[in-house]
Simulated scan of single mutants.
Amino acid sequence: MPLNRSLRVAVAAVACALAVGSTTGPVEAAPKPDPLGALLSPTLFDPLVNLLAALPTPYKGPYQGPVCVSGDPQCIEDVIAEMERRLVPLAASCSHDAIFSLAYLRVTQNVKNAADNGYFADRKWLTQIDAAFAQMYFDTMDAWKAGKKSSVAKAWQIALQATEDRKMSGLGDFMMNMNAHINNDFPYVLEKVGLTAADGTSHKADHNAYNQRLDSLYHPVFDEEAARFDPTFNKLDLGPVDEVLVGAIMRGWREVVWRHAEALANAPSFVRPLVEREISEYAAGQAQFIKALFASPSPDKRAAYCATHHG
């Protein structure tokens, strides 16, 4: 069940534009006139995204675990505590794994804030999604650290080996891990927790709603990564254009994720292996693309900087 190739090309093209700009060294900040800032916002893609309606997917019963079956808000608090616990030694040792660990923590804190303030129509569903998604990440990292490298997905193998070899820029580590977790893992989480509520309502509106929350995280998270781990992390500054690029990538990836989840949920048993292969190959292909564009030009400088700034 291959996805529309034009969507893939669009995502790759935007990722390439971001990558080329971010690996050529410091870029002088362009003027940011208010009219342009108002026009060039990641939200300009939202009308199109919202027009891409969910495909009919039957309700398949309540989520059965393995984590946060209750959907209690405490689940996200527990996830945050575990992320904080894991980040401390990674940051202290300047492990390149600290890049995504920090970003994922900040995203999860933002999810909690959004849920606490009624941002999502179905908080229980969102909480279950958050907890199950994080558990996949924890399990992958634990398997890799335990030497069970062949047991993790191909996109994760590419990302974590590059991170372990310390050959990527900070932004490259971030993009590689983010791609693996979103494009490889997220479809399975969505399918397992459920795409459709008991009353037949699709959860896609809540899935789409988080795009704008992510928009608000790019600058503060990139600045914190640059301050603590890699000073080149936020060197791309093209005014509102850089936010549009990142926003386009994330919206494209998250739309692909939803479609892959639908394919998993609706596939007959004999077709499912083909869908799983499609997901794996798509995520691995994105990983190879990112790896080629985000090699670190100065890994020693990054290490020296982190040693005095990791905080």
Rank of each mutant, 00 (worst) to 15 (best):
residue 243 E to R: 13
residue 239 G to Y: 04
residue 276 E to C: 09
residue 258 W to K: 03
residue 194 G to S: 04
residue 267 A to N: 09
residue 279 I to Y: 01
residue 261 A to H: 02
residue 257 V to N: 12
residue 276 E to K: 10
residue 238 L to G: 03
residue 185 D to Q: 03
residue 188 Y to T: 02
residue 249 I to M: 13
residue 246 V to L: 13
residue 185 D to S: 12
residue 212 Q to D: 05
residue 250 M to D: 11
residue 232 T to P: 10
residue 239 G to S: 03
residue 197 A to V: 05
residue 194 G to P: 00
residue 257 V to T: 13
residue 223 D to Y: 09
residue 234 N to F: 09
residue 193 V to Y: 04
residue 283 A to L: 08
residue 211 N to M: 05
residue 204 K to T: 03
residue 265 A to D: 12
residue 232 T to E: 05
residue 209 A to E: 08
residue 251 R to E: 08
residue 274 L to A: 15
residue 266 N to A: 03
residue 204 K to W: 10
residue 222 F to R: 11
residue 273 P to K: 00
residue 242 D to Q: 15
residue 242 D to F: 12
residue 179 N to T: 01
residue 275 V to L: 01
residue 234 N to S: 15
residue 193 V to M: 03
residue 193 V to T: 02
residue 211 N to V: 00
residue 228 R to I: 06
residue 185 D to H: 10
residue 198 A to R: 04
residue 230 D to W: 05
residue 210 Y to W: 12
residue 236 L to I: 08
residue 230 D to H: 10
residue 197 A to N: 09
residue 192 K to E: 14
residue 206 D to M: 03
residue 179 N to G: 06
residue 239 G to R: 02
residue 232 T to M: 01
residue 268 P to H: 10
residue 271 V to L: 13
residue 276 E to Q: 15
residue 264 L to H: 04
residue 279 I to S: 00
residue 262 E to V: 12
residue 204 K to S: 08
